[in-house]
């Protein structure tokens, strides 16, 4: 019984890697995500449709395509990747950083959508009021806008995190399936389905994935309700 409830080293590795990769993916896209969301919600500019389209593209593209594009761009011989490797010694190939980038790209539109929707709901009269009280645009953003869109930010972060956890196609195409580096939960599960006698292990990973996803959703629900109540008084 105890053996059933304890994780094997392989499972632990995959779970830890998944959480690590997803955490970094979300941290990396949060600042640009908030900025793009704000830009799309509030500004009119030349090429807005293109920015909007580019932001949403990962949502509709097959993840394998994203992985392949990343490989072409950031691979060691890729357009940007070669430069990064030769000049700065940075490589994303076959390590967790590459997996985080794949997850980040795929999760980005979900984050932006959630935050953009909440920015559109903010009463701009409140921001105008803050301006007349002596606050500059940046201060208004951080003391009025950000607190008011916090529920949207939390929703976006959890959605992005969940999407990162489930990321498979872009990751395996871009950085392959390397134990301890890029073999996250879904990749580990896939690996087990490809070997004889892997069913039990695959099933266990399946349960772990469900539990993690369920907790993420619960956390999202509770935290956005808590924040929402704090805002509405």
């Amino acid at each position: 019984m105890i053996e059933l409830l304890t994780l094997t080293p392989l499972e632990k590795e995959a779970l830890k890697l998944s959480l690590w990769v997803s955490t970094w993916a979300v941290i990396a896209i949060l600042p640009p995500g908030v900025f793009i969301a704000w830009l799309l919600a509030r500004k009119r500019f030349f090429g807005k449709t293109i920015v909007d389209g580019m932001t949403h593209l990962p949502l509709v593209l097959p993840p394998v395509v994203i992985g392949y594009v990343l490989l072409v761009l950031l691979g060691r011989k890729g357009v940007v990747g070669a430069w990064l490797y030769e000049r700065l010694g940075i490589s994303f190939m076959f390590n967790w950083k590459g997996a985080a980038i794949a997850s980040a790209v795929v999760a980005f539109p979900l984050l932006v959508r959630a935050i953009r929707l909440s920015i559109e709901q903010v009463d701009q009269g409140l921001e105008a009021a803050a301006r007349t009280l002596g606050a500059g645009p940046l201060r208004v953003f951080f003391t009025v806008t950000v607190p008011l869109i916090m529920p949207g930010i939390i929703t976006g972060v959890i959605l992005a995190f969940a999407r990162s956890l489930s990321e498979f196609g872009a990751t395996i195409t871009f950085v392959s399936n390397i134990p301890g580096q890029t073999r996250t939960l879904p990749l580990a599960l896939y690996t087990l389905t490809q070997v004889p006698d892997g069913e039990v292990g695959a099933f266990r990973l399946c349960v772990i994935s469900v539990v993690v996803a369920f907790f993420a959703l619960l956390l999202s629900e509770f935290s956005s309700r808590y924040v929402f109540n704090r805002i509405r008084g």
């Binding site: 009269g125 409140l126 607190p147």
Partner: peptide, 20 residues
């Protein structure tokens, strides 16, 4: 001059208190 540097107080029709 931007509104935050005008040193004017503005009381709006709808109050506009910060709800948070």
């Amino acid at each position: 001059v931007p509104p935050n540097k005008r040193r004017l107080g503005y009381i709006f029709q709808d109050g506009r208190l910060f709800p948070h």
